[in-house]
Every structure is written in structure tokens, then in C-alpha cells.
């Protein structure tokens, strides 16, 4: 988009560009590997720039003092880190963060228990109706959230079963999250459980372990990496979700509204009470949990996403 990818090149091919350009070209023609190598670095730096630059700019905007906001450009216009405190004093941002994390952890726990049982069944047992059920679960994950919304909204407002009002409670979000994100975990865990050799389970059974005992003492420990993968992906998916997080509560932090509502509250308070720097600071704070998770668990994310998607 904006940036010149060439700007980063001297670092990598410095000794080559320092000499006359023609000599470099001549060498490259004789040895195409060099040209490929240079192209590779240019492209890599371009990708790094486009993915990371917005974060840098958000930080630059956040630390720019209020009166200099219109001077912000590639560099911050001044330095005033107090906005990171303003985020918490102007609105209860920590409550939104807390709600988001509680919702994500609870959903992840529910999904892991249910999807482990289902993944074990699909990965290790043979029974009539297995492929039909798997196809049905796959099909459900194709539908857009909007196709589930109206009846769920009526259900959670007590219009279907009188007395059952979940709107503005964690249940109104955790239930849709769990059912919509469970299919991915089921497919990831089906793959992992399916890879465990039959002999191990048989041995445990011969020694007199019960079916459930074999599942929890033999199969689960062996598939711990799979369970961790499904857990990380579910946590990120719930933390990032917009649709039900936005529509299943009235946006009040006391009603379990997650960061979606917090960020939107910052945005809608307008530029008078809440400056653009505070919006930027809030975004940076809310991104930190998932950014840390990506750095720690990137292998799991990569393997989980590809296993879940290519399973089909």
C-alpha cells in the first residue's frame, strides 16, 4: 500500500548494491540464484511491512498528545503515554476485558469437554450414522451467524420459553459461541484421536481399565497437543467474535458486554470526550492477550487451522 519495499533492501544485499548496480545485474544474469534471493528478501520485507505497520501507526497515534493529533503522520507528534491510563478512567475498560476473558475461557472449557468426547467417538469408534453426523456438523458450520440470530434472540428474551431470559447474561453469548465454534474443535480432535495407535487402548482394556478410564488415562494424555490446539483456537475465536458479542447484550459492562462493546463505546463517545489517541490506546491494550497467545502458541495455531480445514 503506502511504503516502498525497496527501502529495506540495503540491509540484506548491502554489499551488492554498494557497488555499481550494473555489476550486480551482470552477476545476477550469470547466476539467477542471486536475483531470486534478492526478490525473496524484497517480498518478505514488503509482507512484514504491510502486516506490522498498522500496529506501529496505532502506537504512534496513541502516544500523540491531544493538541497535536492533526500533526500525526509516520512519526508521533509528541509523546504522552498517559492515554493508556485514560482508557481505564474514562470508561471501565478493565471490566470489558475481564468479561471477554471470562467468556472466552468458559466457552473454551465447554467446547473442549464436548468436542473431546465427540472427537474420540468420530476418531476411534465405528458405528452406523457416523458419516452422516459428521457431514451434518460440517454443514452447520457453513451457515452464517445471521441465520441463527432471530430465533436465538427470541429464545434469550423469554419469548419461546417464558421465564428463560438469558439476554444480558453470559449464557446468551456462551451458548451460541460454543455451538458455532465446536465443529472446528471436533474436526481437530477427530484427527488427533484417530492418529493414536489402537494397540495402546487395547492394552489398557485388557489390563482391566474401563472404557472411560481408557479415554481419560490413555487417550487424553496422548492427544494433549490436539486438545491444546483446539483450546487455543477456540479462545482466539471467541475473544475475536463480533456478531453475538455485539447483539446479545445491551453494551453495559455490568451485563457481561465484552471488548466489542468497550471499543465501540470509545468510538461512539466521539472526539470530544474521548480522543482518537484513547481509541488507539484501547485497541492496543485489547489486542495484547491474543498477540501474546500467537507468539507463544504459533505452532499450535498453524497445525490446528490446517488440520481443521483440510480435514474436509
Amino acid at each position: 500500500m503506502a511504503g516502498e519495499p525497496e527501502s529495506g533492501r540495503p540491509d540484506d544485499t548491502g554489499e551488492l548494491t554498494r557497488g555499481p548496480f550494473e555489476r550486480w545485474v551482470a552477476k545476477s544474469i550469470k547466476n539467477p540464484e542471486r536475483a531470486y534471493r534478492a526478490m525473496f528478501y524484497v517480498v518478505t520485507i514488503f509482507f512484514l511491512f504491510t502486516t506490522l505497520f498498522p500496529f506501529y501507526w496505532l502506537l504512534a497515534l496513541a502516544v500523540t498528545p491531544e493538541d497535536a493529533l492533526y500533526e500525526v503522520g509516520l512519526l508521533p507528534a509528541g509523546f504522552d503515554p498517559t492515554v493508556f491510563v485514560d482508557v481505564f478512567t474514562k470508561i471501565p475498560f478493565h471490566v470489558y476485558m475481564f468479561n471477554s476473558i471470562v467468556l472466552a475461557v468458559t466457552t473454551t472449557a465447554i467446547v473442549l469437554v464436548l468436542a473431546s468426547l465427540a472427537g474420540y467417538v468420530f476418531g476411534r469408534l465405528d458405528f452406523p450414522g457416523k458419516s452422516v453426523l459428521m457431514l451434518a456438523i460440517l454443514a452447520i458450520s457453513y451457515f452464517p451467524p445471521a441465520a441463527f440470530f432471530l430465533p436465538l434472540w427470541q429464545l434469550f428474551n423469554g419469548n419461546v420459553i417464558t421465564g428463560l431470559e438469558l439476554y444480558n447474561t453470559p449464557g446468551a453469548m456462551i451458548l451460541p459461541f460454543s455451538s458455532l465454534f465446536m465443529p472446528l474443535s471436533i474436526f481437530i480432535l477427530t484427527t488427533f484421536f484417530g492418529q493414536i495407535p489402537d494397540g495402546l487402548e487395547d492394552a489398557a482394556r485388557v489390563e482391566g481399565t474401563t472404557r472411560l478410564g481408557a479415554l481419560f488415562r490413555v487417550i487424553m494424555p496422548l492427544s494433549a497437543p490436539g486438545v491444546a490446539t483446539a483450546g487455543v483456537l477456540t479462545f482466539i475465536a471467541v475473544y475475536n467474535e463480533f456478531f453475538f458479542s455485539y447483539l446479545m447484550n445491551n453494551g453495559e459492562p455490568s451485563n457481561w458486554a465484552p471488548i466489542v462493546a468497550g471499543i465501540l463505546q470509545l468510538q461512539r463517545a466521539g472526539q470530544f470526550q474521548i480522543t482518537y489517541s484513547v481509541m488507539a490506546a484501547g485497541s492496543i491494550i485489547a489486542v495484547l492477550p491474543v498477540a501474546i497467545l500467537v507468539v507463544i502458541a504459533q505452532e499450535k495455531i498453524v497445525s490446528g487451522l490446517t488440520a481443521g480445514a483440510l480435514k474436509e
Partner: peptide, 17 residues
């Protein structure tokens, strides 16, 4: 990591950005 991070950004923050 750098390439995956945008994928992990919450939708509302992507929008705000």
C-alpha cells in the same frame, strides 16, 4: 508470527484500526 498476528486481531479492533 508477523504474518499470523493480523488474523488474531479481534474484528472490532480491525474495524477501529
Amino acid at each position: 508470527v508477523a504474518i499470523i498476528i493480523p488474523w488474531a486481531v479481534p474484528i472490532v479492533i480491525q474495524g477501529m484500526l
